[in-house]
Structures are given as C-alpha cells and as structure tokens.
Simulated assay, not measured.
Amino acid sequence: MPNHSIQDKVVLITGGAKNLGGLLARDLAAHGARAVAIHYNSDASRDAAEDTVQAIRAAGAQALAIQADLSSAAAMERLFAEVVAAFGRPDIAINTVGKVLKKPITEVSEAEYDEMAAVNAKSAFFFLCEAGRQLNDNGKVCTLVTSLLGAFTPFYAAYAGTKAPVEHFTRAAAKEFGERGISVTAVGPGPMDTPFFYPAEGADAVAYHKTAAALSALSSTGLTDIGDVVPFIRHLVSDGWWITGQTILINGGYTTK
C-alpha cells in the first residue's frame, strides 16, 4: 500500500499567500510536509506571501514563494518547473486560484467573460495538465471551485459558469492519472469569511448568505470558515486518496448537488 501521509512530501499551492491557500500552506507544513511552494498573483499579495513563507519555515518545512499570472499554459509550465528545480517533483498540488464576478448575464462584457474564463477555467485546466506531467506517482491534486455549482441563482453566470468546467476536468484527469495512483478532486466551499467574498456582495446579499446554510447559526459569522475547509482538503490529499474524480461541497448545508 503506498504511503499517503503528508510527511516529507513536496506541496505546491497556487493562490497560497493568504486566506484559504495561506492557511493550507501553514497546515500542511505543520503536518510534516518537507517543502511547500506557494504561488501568488500580484505585488499586492507579496507581503502576505512572505509572511506565509516565514510561517512555513517556522513549522520546519522548506518554503518558496513564486509570483506569476497563471492565465497562460506557459506560465503554468514555468511555475511547476520552478518548484521541481527547487524541491524536486511535487507530491501534492492544490489550486485555490479564482475570481468572482456578480453581475446580470446581460451586462457581462466580452472582456469580463474572457478574464473570468482565463482565471477560473483555463488556469485550472493547465494546472491539471502540469500536475499530470510533473507529480510523483501516488500524488494528490485538488482544485477549489464553488458551492454555487449546486445553486439555482441569478447574477453568477460568469463566475459559477467558468468554474463549472473544472468538474469535468477533474473527472477526466482522475481517469487519466489513476493508473499512476494519483487522485484528483475538486472542493466547493460555501461563501467564506475572507476578503475574497465581501467586495462582490451588497449588504443585503451578505445578510442573506450569513443565514442561508443549515449550520449558519453555529458559525461565528454565519459563513463558511476557512478553518473548517482545511481539514477536508488535508484529508483528500492524504488518507482520503480513495476519493477521486469527485466535486465535494463543503458549505454547512448551503447548497447541494
């Protein structure tokens, strides 16, 4: 039976500077990862990336932060190549990159659609491509999607619509990589209490989301806490390897498939 622990593994987390990605980086380092490479997109996240790097090292793991715009296949290839050069082939690859747009479908411009597709679908596709090429056998891959994939709702056509293809990318990659022992999953949190959530929502929508989940009353904010998502992803990229090709909604009963 292959070893599915996190101990001594090399981890890559895109969007790993802060919020859920940053907490995952810290958590996997604390659970014994040998090295954790984090990606961040812009200069605005540089300080957060450096803080996360220091936290990873304090937990006893090697760390590397890489800045890149991952909306091209070439950029994704360079990202994985940098990780391989620094630490060797990764064992665990987690993609938390995403962009939200809340707008009536009739008001979404072509430029906005192209950007959403590039960030949410294209980057996820080529992340899986490079993971399939570069991961060690018995590796683990997980991509962040959204619980809105289980919703019947207006205004999120460009967001949920460009996350939706990742479900099929996940199934296809799981089938193709399975003979090498690589598991591939997608995780869809509910609205999370992070700065990623609030700019896209008005006050009325925030109030609704804070009461919409079955377990909202048990959350300090009513929203999904990133601390409640991290253990599930950790499980999927370790002992939960037998779960593959699936999209799992972690949302306290906010939506269901």
Results as ranks from 00 to 15, higher is better:
26 R>N: 15
200 A>Q: 01
210 K>F: 02
55 A>V: 02
160 A>W: 07
243 I>K: 01
79 L>C: 12
161 G>M: 11
198 Y>K: 12
48 A>G: 13
126 F>G: 06
140 K>Y: 09
207 A>W: 08
184 V>L: 14
76 M>F: 05
121 A>F: 06
165 P>G: 08
39 H>R: 11
29 A>D: 14
132 G>C: 10
150 G>K: 08
36 V>H: 11
189 P>R: 03
240 G>Y: 05
179 E>H: 12
209 H>W: 05
240 G>D: 06
38 I>W: 12
223 L>R: 03
249 L>H: 15
33 A>W: 10
138 N>W: 15
14 T>Y: 04
210 K>V: 03
12 L>D: 02
119 V>P: 00
212 A>P: 02
13 I>H: 02
24 L>C: 02
205 A>D: 14
36 V>L: 12
5 S>H: 05
151 A>C: 09
59 A>Q: 11
21 G>P: 09
93 A>F: 06
42 S>A: 09
254 Y>S: 05
156 Y>G: 00
39 H>G: 12
47 D>C: 00
135 L>E: 12
131 A>V: 08
23 L>P: 05
237 V>H: 00
111 A>V: 08
23 L>K: 15
47 D>M: 04
152 F>E: 14
146 T>C: 00
9 K>P: 04
105 I>F: 14
194 T>K: 08
137 D>Y: 05
104 P>L: 08
167 E>K: 12
94 I>L: 15
245 G>C: 07
59 A>W: 04
115 E>G: 06
124 A>F: 06
80 F>Y: 15
229 V>H: 07
85 A>G: 12
180 R>T: 09
241 W>M: 10
209 H>E: 10
179 E>R: 11
226 I>L: 00
157 A>R: 07
171 R>K: 15
64 L>R: 14
106 T>E: 15
139 G>C: 11
